[in-house]
């Protein structure tokens, strides 16, 4: 798997999966039962996962929209909810 496709694959991960994998990698590294080249690859992946998690965290912002419906009940779109 090339680096690019690896990165792409990480991008597709959910926050939870990324965090879980990061935890797994950290545990493997901390146990020290890992080959050096694997350790390096794991570290790189861990770093990418961490970046993804941080970005997902940083992306968190509230956006509240209200679904608008046509007269016959079809979804026409959204509008700012203006609830707060």
């Amino acid at each position: 798997m090339s680096d690019k496709s690896k990165l792409k694959e990480i991008e597709a991960l959910s926050f939870e999966d990324a965090l879980k994998e990061l935890e797994t990698i950290v545990q493997q590294l901390e146990r020290g039962q890992i080959k050096l080249d694997e350790a390096i690859a794991a570290y790189e992946r861990g770093a990418a996962l961490k970046a993804l998690c941080e970005r997902k965290l940083a992306e968190a912002k509230a956006k509240v929209e209200k679904i608008t419906l046509s007269a016959d009940g079809q979804v026409t779109g959204t509008e700012p909810a203006g609830l707060e």
Partner: peptide, 19 residues
Amino acid sequence: LRASILDQARRLVSGMARE
């Protein structure tokens, strides 16, 4: 979560360094 990730990141670095 942020704290947890920071912790994981720190452990990742130190784990790698130790490795």
